[in-house]
Design a protein around this nucleic acid. Structure first.
Lengths: 116, 116
DNA sequence: ACGGGTACCTTGTGACGCATGGTAGAGGGA
DNA sequence: TCCCTCTACCATGCGTCACAAGGTACCCGT
């Protein structure tokens, strides 16, 4: 119960960014939660789970960054489809600039003292 | 009291990475806390404060990733200098690989649906 | 009728960035 | 001497969120 837990230093890294990754996926078109979990799970370096995504989507809805509508599935239970609001698009654009600055800063710092 | 707070979605992004930025700075040579605050504060996109750095250094010490030693200052109160342990170097190397995967994943996702 | 895949959700835990405020040494000016 | 500023350390409390774990319900094939 020591290695690989959520509390390991590395696994805090995703905080705050997953929300915007979800919003970026929604920019391509509306999607439902379970589908988003699969989409993110298929990206190398970006693990996640339902326990992360559903509360996240609820927060985005609460904050007016996304809107949702129920649609029936051709087979299976109904799905709640999400799409970006104007506010969500603006917020996403702002984040993208923040992310560029931040990740450049981290890249620069991580190169310090390197001998490669 | 609504905008720009710590709780704004953007400001969660630094979680988990600042520790490794500090460790990367220590790879260049030993430093003391107040100096680290200034060093990080001078990097664009990487804001921080004493309230972040001192607890962080205490955690790194607790986890054996850094070691510290007191030294007198030529003028002013004594300083606690930190340096990386073997364990810290290993941990940093692992993080650098994780970070590369993760930031590539985010970069890729943020490009989705973009029209630029 | 029942097992498995799909799809939604809630609750609890732990971690940590940050604001705030507090202590103490050294040096300079009135 | 008294005070002010700068340096340097630290502790406390708040709020947020990733994740694990567990629960409900629908549909379909056997």
């Amino acid at each position: 119960m020591v290695e690989g837990r959520q509390g390991s230093l590395v696994s805090q890294m995703r905080r705050g960014t997953i929300a915007f990754c979800v919003m970026a996926l929604l920019r391509e078109g509306s999607r439902y939660g379970f589908d988003l979990v699969r989409a993110l799970g298929g990206v190398d370096g970006m693990v996640t789970s339902e326990g992360t995504i559903y509360p996240l989507l609820a927060r985005l809805r609460r904050d007016g960054l996304v809107e949702s509508a129920w649609r029936e599935s051709p087979s299976g239970p109904p799905r709640r489809y999400y799409e970006l609001t104007k506010s969500g698009e603006t917020s996403l654009r702002e984040f993208i600039e923040e992310w560029a600055r931040f990740s450049d800063a981290v890249d620069g710092l991580l190169r310090k003292g390197r001998q490669t």
